[in-house]
Structure formats: C-alpha cells, structure tokens
C-alpha cells in the first residue's frame, strides 16, 4: 500500500493562512490503514486546526469528510455540489489523491496534508517499511523475492557492499542489509550459484527516469473516452 505521514501542524497551518473555510478530506483506503489520513485522523486534525486558529485570533471553519478512495473519479465526483462553499480542500489523501482532486475540480485550491512516503507494509504494529519503488520492470524472481531497488541504500544489483555488517546496512543500524537477506534466502534454497551471476545494468527507462509513466489497455478502454484524432479499435 501507499504509506503516508501527516505533515507538522505548523506547516499545515501556514498553508491555510489565506483560506477561511476549509474541507478536511480524508481517504478511506491506504492512508486509513496506515493511520495517516482516515476519518479518525481527519477529525483530530480538523479540531486541532480549529483550536489553533482560534487561539491565534483567526478562527477558521473546518469541515470534515472522508471518501472511500480519493484516487478514483467515482468516489470524488459526488463532492462536486458541496465544494462551492469552501475556499480550499486540505487533502489527507496521498499525493495521487491531491492531484485527482485538482484534476476533477480545477477551480478548487487543494493542499497536501500528508507527506506521501513510500510503497510498503506495516512490518509490525506502528512500524512501516518500504518494499517497492515501482521500477516498472520487476526483478524479484532474480533476488529471491526481496527487492534491492527499494531496499538497498545504494540500489546495488550485485551486493552486498563492503559496509554490510551483522546483517545491518552501513547507513543505519536499524536498517536490515537487504543483500544479507537475499544471501540468506538464496543459500536456504540452495541457489547460491544464481547469486554468482552478475546482474547487468538495469534498464531504468521503465522507471521514473524514462519520464512520467502511463499504461494504456485498449481492451479495457471505452469508445466514448477516445479523444478526437485517436483511432478507436
């Protein structure tokens, strides 16, 4: 899932300076699961902002709302009729949610209440860890199911580097050296000969380096969505 973290209150307050009536909008999917932007967090943030702005003598109106998914038109479209009342939306969705709102409601000011941090999982209660960088060409079958692109601090394809010690990465004693993990798993499965193969330089064109990415599935597109000039099947 997409993992996010709420921005500091002071930063959010600063963003809202010019707006009086704000809709604090949560998202019921990834950021709810990681306790950053669901109904509960929307409630807490909205009341903190109400109190904080009141103390400053500049009380703002903060309404609360959470949609099932901020990144899909069908869940955000119903908001349209209410938006006329607001000066801005403070989104507690991920960066995709914020931009979906901007695209759907071009006249609205939409502000990010979260820092979208990574694609990952909760490794234990209260701890989230990165697992994937969406590189666009998955190599997990070559690395025993453990991703060095997202999890090696130097993105080595032929690790571990010389800084790996006691299973930890050289940059942080709290961080597992992912090449130690790959090594252990490969030796467990008797695959160490595979580890002797040199992985060639990666094709980064499928990653962000190739420019913003887009997937088109002609088999799924609807005839009415074809733009003028585009040939529909």
């Amino acid at each position: 899932m997409i993992v996010g973290e709420q921005k500091p209150l002071a930063e959010i307050k600063g963003m809202l300076e010019d707006y009086r009536k704000v809709l604090v909008l949560g998202c019921g999917t990834c950021v709810t699961v990681c306790f950053a932007g669901g109904t509960k967090e929307v409630g807490i943030l909205a009341s903190s902002l109400r109190m904080a702005t009141q103390l400053d003598g500049n009380a703002k109106e903060m309404d609360e709302e959470t949609v099932q998914r901020q990144c899909e038109w069908e869940y955000i479209d119903p908001l349209e009729e209410r938006l006329g009342d607001y000066d801005a939306i403070l989104s507690l969705g991920c960066g995709i949610g914020v931009q979906a709102l901007v695209e759907r409601f071009p006249k609205m000011r939409v502000l990010p209440g979260l820092n979208t941090t990574f694609l990952g999982l909760p490794s234990e209660q209260g701890v989230w860890e990165e697992r994937c960088q969406a590189c666009g060409e998955c190599i997990l079958h070559l690395t025993a199911g453990i991703c060095p692109i997202a999890r090696c601090s130097k993105q080595l394809l032929n690790g571990p580097c010389g800084g790996s010690q006691d299973g930890k990465c050289e940059i942080d004693p709290e961080l597992a050296c992912v090449w130690q993990l790959i090594y252990e798993r490969m030796s467990e499965f008797g695959m160490l000969d595979k580890l002797m193969e040199i992985l060639p330089p990666k094709d980064w064109s499928t990653s962000r380096d190739g420019g913003p990415r887009r997937i088109v599935r002609e088999d799924l597109r609807l005839p009415e969505d074809y733009q003028e000039g585009e040939s529909s099947p």
Binding site: S153, K154, Q155, L156, L157, N158, G159, C161, G162, G163, E170, I171, I198, L199, P200, P201, W204
Partner: peptide, 24 residues
C-alpha cells in the same frame, strides 16, 4: 567503487545516482 552513502558526507540532502553498481 560503489561509493560511501551521501548521508555520511557534507551534502546529506543530495540525490544519489547508483545507475550502475561497482560490478557493472
């Protein structure tokens, strides 16, 4: 060399590259 991670140095906010690794 792969190179020491930038977090150890004097520009810890830099973007690192690691397009290829030392083996490559």
């Amino acid at each position: 060399l792969s190179g020491d991670h930038q977090s150890f140095g004097n520009h810890p906010t830099a973007k690192n590259v690691h397009d290829v690794d030392s083996m490559q």
